[in-house]
Nucleic acid binder design. Sequence first.
DNA 1: ATATAATATATCAATTCGATATATGAGCGG
DNA 2: CCGCTCATATATCGAATTGATATATTATAT
Lengths: 182, 182
Amino acid sequence: MDVKTVCLGMLTDGEASGYDLKKHFESSFGHFFAAGYGSIYPALASLSAQGYVSCKEIPQQGKPDRKVYRITENGRRRLLQELDHPNPSHKVRSEFLATMCFAHLMTPDQVQTVLDNRITEIDRYLTMFDEFECTCMEQTPNGMHFTVGLGRAVMSAMKKYLEEHGHVLLENPQIGKRPATG
Amino acid sequence: MDVKTVCLGMLTDGEASGYDLKKHFESSFGHFFAAGYGSIYPALASLSAQGYVSCKEIPQQGKPDRKVYRITENGRRRLLQELDHPNPSHKVRSEFLATMCFAHLMTPDQVQTVLDNRITEIDRYLTMFDEFECTCMEQTPNGMHFTVGLGRAVMSAMKKYLEEHGHVLLENPQIGKRPATG
DNA sequence: ATATAATATATCAATTCGATATATGAGCGG
DNA sequence: CCGCTCATATATCGAATTGATATATTATAT
């Protein structure tokens, strides 16, 4: 399950350009599967070369031609194959938590700032989730509601934990400790 | 904050080889910052070339020489610089959630298997967290306890959500739906 | 006896990230 | 009306990362 497969899945909802897909990656998929142009455009080119999507070029003045992609029957079959994996991964890459591991090397002010900013970001996500539920259509698949709900549950738990336990990182600041490790 | 910086941080706890660091990445850091040999060894080589760590080669018979790295004063300064970023990222890359977005294209059996396997994996993490708290020393920095606690809070919330809402993905299976998108 | 796991380092192709380049129209403030 | 930012739209590129594989030996389990 790479960017290619997620693009393919998004195209089951109807034809779209790379630019359109990027907006999906930013909004509904943003909290668990980010992708930039540097991944999306090569993905679409590759899918097209493999015959999993067809491409319709719509000329525009000023802007580059708009390339609209549509999933093919082969693409649909390929997607079902990719979805048939029993144990898909769920990975976190957190510079935030990595930073907090070394809070004892930072000043309390630095730590507090990082904690505050994380909570602000979580609030941004929670707002985004609310907006999604307000603006989405009835035919929006269950899976989208499910992932947004899970995002909300996880983000809320994280916020609560930060508010309740963040203070332990501010206690006994020990900068410059460990004068002789060996 | 890349693998290089995290390695540098780990080395503030004492000297270690790439192999040793890999074990840290698998255990205490595993749930929020995974890294494989393909990242760790080049990172250590680069840190060494930049003078942020020193390297002591210990010959061994049979196995390759054990290379033990130690953080230098320059490295310590560099680490503090890297830690001085107010808004470190926290990113999720979830093939699991991406798959669940397309649950309506899968059979209920397939979806159930994926959900079950995710819960099993969460339980593995929760066990790992318990073991960490049992086996860690008194001088273990607050930050490590904090990140493990946050991991536990987040994983528990996720498990609860899966148990309470997973069933919505099994309702109205609509495989082969959308016969004419255009 | 055979297979697997642990110790230990290293490389490589494929993938992804993050920034940048290009080109234009719309809207807004000074 | 000039300049600024934002939105539209595609594309590339170096750097970082992933995941697999190679090598070599000993210890443990089947």
